[in-house]
């Protein structure tokens, strides 16, 4: 549940950001980023649909590599799609 995934912002409308990570798109709330609003192109750490902090591209890319490994190694199928 505390698993957070870095995503890149592609568009912002109000507090809603269209974000992408490795070819997967999600709507992400920026409601918790009001003190330091990110902009299009920025990378954010996303947890349960909310951006919790901005981060650098380099940090985002190394996290993605780790998730690739984790997803390959998990032997139990997820609860739901």
């Amino acid at each position: 549940m505390c698993l957070a995934i870095p995503m890149q912002i592609e568009a912002i409308e109000g507090y809603l950001a269209r974000c992408q990570a490795k070819g997967v798109w999600r709507d992400v709330s920026l409601f918790m980023m009001q003190d330091e609003m990110p902009k299009v192109g920025d990378y954010v750490m996303v947890h349960v649909g909310y951006a919790i902090q901005t981060m650098t591209e380099a940090e985002a890319r190394s996290s993605w590599e780790l998730f690739d490994e984790l997803l390959c190694e998990t032997d139990v199928p997820p609860e739901h799609a």
């Binding site: 549940m1 505390c2 957070a4 507090y15 709330s29 409601f31 918790m32 947890h47 349960v48 649909g49 909310y50 919790i52």
Partner: peptide, 17 residues
């Protein structure tokens, strides 16, 4: 909603919204 601070904060955000 069960969760630690990282998950409860987005729940708080949803309530505030």
């Amino acid at each position: 909603a069960a969760g630690f601070e990282t998950t409860t904060a987005p729940v708080a955000a949803a309530i505030a919204e």
